[in-house]
Design a protein around this nucleic acid. Structure first.
Length: 207
DNA sequence: TGCCAGGCCCTCTTTAGGGCCTT
C-alpha cells in the first residue's frame, strides 16, 4: 500500500525569496487513510519572527532561540520523508520553503507534490472557501485546538486528504486512490474532472 | 508616485485581470 507524506511549514513570512525562513516543520505519514507516523520540530534559523506572525502561530522568538538549528532539523526531516510522495495544503507555498531549506543543507527533493487546495476546489466546489479550517469544518472533520502550528495543520490536512480519497473512491467506484491520480485530478478543470477519472479508470482497467 | 509573493484558478479568457491560499 502507498504511503504519502503530508507536510506543513510555519515560517517568518510568505516568500523565501523575500528572506522568509522556516520556523517549524511537521510531516505526517499516511497509509490507507490512517496516520502511521509523525515528525515535528521547531527550528532556529537565527531570524526574527515579526510580531503579527508570533500572534498568528503562537511561535515566539523566545521559543525559536531554544530550538535546534534549522540545518539539523531539515536533515532529520529529509531523512524522515525520503522519497515518499508529498501532499500539502496550498502546496506551492510549502514546496518553495522545502526546496529552499533543503538547498541550504545541500539536499534536494526528488518527489512530486499534490495539493489539497486544488483537489478541494474540484471535489467541494460549493464549500464557502478553500481555507484549511473551512474545509475541515465543511467536511465535519476533527478541528485542531491550535491551528497555525505545523503538526496541527499537517494533521488537519491529513484528515482532509483521507476524506478526499474516500469521497473519490465512493463517487467513482475506485478500489484505491494513488498519488498519481491526485496529481492528474488537480491538473484538470472542474468541468473535465469526471472525464479525467473515467479515462484513468479505463487505462487502469478498473470497472 | 505607487507598488512591493507567487503560483494557480476562473472567466465577462487566451493580445488579461482579479481573486484565492499559504505565513
Amino acid at each position: 500500500m502507498e504511503t504519502v507524506a503530508v507536510i506543513d511549514f510555519e515560517t517568518t513570512g510568505l516568500a523565501p525569496e523575500e528572506g522568509a525562513r522556516a520556523t517549524e516543520i511537521a510531516v505526517v505519514l499516511m497509509r490507507e487513510g490512517q496516520i502511521v507516523d509523525r515528525f515535528q520540530s521547531l527550528m532556529n534559523a537565527r531570524v526574527r519572527i515579526p510580531a503579527f506572525i508570533e500572534a498568528l502561530t503562537g511561535i515566539t522568538n523566545a521559543m525559536i532561540r531554544q530550538a535546534p538549528p534549522v540545518a539539523e532539523v531539515m536533515r532529520q526531516a529529509a531523512d524522515f520523508i525520503g522519497d515518499t510522495p508529498l501532499i500539502a495544503h496550498n502546496a506551492a507555498f510549502d514546496r518553495k520553503f522545502l526546496d529552499t531549506e533543503l538547498a541550504r543543507v545541500d539536499r534536494c527533493r526528488s518527489q512530486e507534490f499534490a495539493c489539497t487546495v486544488l483537489l478541494s476546489r474540484r471535489l467541494y466546489p460549493k464549500a464557502p472557501d478553500h481555507k484549511l479550517g473551512t474545509l475541515v469544518r465543511y467536511n465535519g472533520l476533527p478541528v485542531a485546538e491550535r491551528a497555525h502550528r505545523a503538526l496541527a495543520d499537517a494533521e488537519m490536512t491529513a484528515h482532509l486528504l483521507a476524506r478526499i480519497e474516500a469521497d473519490l473512491k465512493t463517487r467513482y467506484e475506485l478500489p484505491e486512490v494513488r498519488h498519481e491520480l491526485l496529481r492528474r485530478i488537480q491538473k484538470v478543470s472542474l468541468a473535465n474532472l469526471d472525464g479525467c477519472i473515467q479515462s484513468f479508470k479505463r487505462r487502469m482497467q478498473i470497472g
